[in-house]
Design a protein around this nucleic acid. Structure first.
Lengths: 138, 138
DNA sequence: CAGGATCCCAGTGGATACTG
DNA sequence: CAGTATCCACTGGGATCCTG
């Protein structure tokens, strides 16, 4: 487990910028929930609003617009009365599910470790540093 | 390519919450750059500051503290004069590189598609909707 | 039903100045 | 060198009200 050198293509240059754009796309407060909901099929606006617990109408709209603009989500309008709008994942949007799934696995596997680390950090005043100085602790 | 059903463990429940926490961890403005820099080995504070282009001292500090608190980064203090502090990835931090790498690949592969989608969205007033109404366009 | 328009607040992050 | 402290601007996001 944990090979020493992962293939990180140019994380420190342009690739990183691209990645941060992605993270800002799916890293905002709601995109992931929306994509998660859409994963199992298209939804109407208020369906999403109910499924994505806690989202405001404003943020749902903004989130969907953003995802639509980036070609991850389709928006289909039916000019019926009452109006009906359906949102669904595009091909591109579906490909996003793969990296997200990997991330979710990592999150689930690491959650306890992270929580423990946090607890330790908050308890131990992490003021230890090296005892003899000039020597690595570890 | 693009299998229809990805393994998305409970994206809509707790797994999603955990994932959002992760996204907030690495999805902030600098964490990914820092982890990316640290990927090739430990760094001193000002080394990081130089490598992570554009980061302010304040944000670098906050980012490193956060990563340290979550057990992703180690901080080793040498009480020499001048003071010397080295940051490096922990085991846990290294495991994060895997999902991040997947995400970076997706980002790089999808970037042009996303940019095209954006351009189209901004040009076409995306005011098309269905032409005959009540029928899916697709 | 689907959302646009407003108002407002809290948190994020930048700039600058100071310290051990 | 490696920070801490302060002040401030910007924006993400919630609440509320209004419209086609």
């Amino acid at each position: 487990m944990t090979p020493r050198h992962i293939d990180l293509p140019k994380l420190s240059e342009s690739g990183c910028l691209a990645t941060r754009e992605i993270l800002e796309r799916i890293g905002d407060k709601w995109s992931l929930y929306v994509v998660g909901s859409l994963h199992t099929g298209p939804r109407r606006f208020n369906e999403l609003r109910r499924e994505v617990n806690g989202v405001s109408q404003r943020m749902l709209t903004l989130t969907l617009r953003g995802l639509e603009r980036d070609g991850l989500v389709t928006r289909t309008v039916f000019h019926s009365i009452p109006p009906r709008v359906e949102y669904g994942l595009t091909e591109l949007g579906r490909t996003l599910l793969e990296p997200v799934a990997v991330l979710i696995h990592w999150a689930n596997n690491s959650r306890s470790a992270i929580e423990m680390a946090r607890a330790r950090y908050d308890t131990d005043k992490h003021e230890v540093s090296c005892s003899t100085c000039n020597t690595h602790r570890d």
